[in-house]
Amino acid sequence: MTGKGGCVKHELRILALAALCSLVPLAARAAPTAADIAAGRKIAFTKTLGNCIACHVIPGGAQPGNIGPNLTHIRVLVPHRKDAYAIIFDEPARKPQTPMPPFGRNHILTPAQIRQVIAFLYSHK
């Protein structure tokens, strides 16, 4: 490893710590509100935000893509919301070959936005 690469690693470690800190309050958070669900819906269906609909079937979304799994029954696919958070935050860390972008790691969405998306996805019974 060159000095430069090591430097990048170090700085990123600090970044990762900062990201972890924002993860901590997750468990303590109150139940999602209707406003959270509405915000999550907007993120999931907007190209410049999450654009989840580009690859996933999601109830209420027109012209979905078919690259990722159908998220209609996400409660069955991913029973625990904290697993969903990990998948959206950085799926390539779990499965390097996945086409799913690392939304949290690459700052595509903020942790708060990811929680809103989860609130929306899990609002379907």
């Binding site: 893509g65 690259i67 086409p99």
Partner: peptide, 16 residues
């Protein structure tokens, strides 16, 4: 994404 992520791994699939 790489070029391959879409055009090699998922040809024929739909993005929106």
């Amino acid at each position: 994404f790489s070029c391959a992520s879409c055009h090699l791994q998922y040809p024929g699939h739909r993005v929106r």
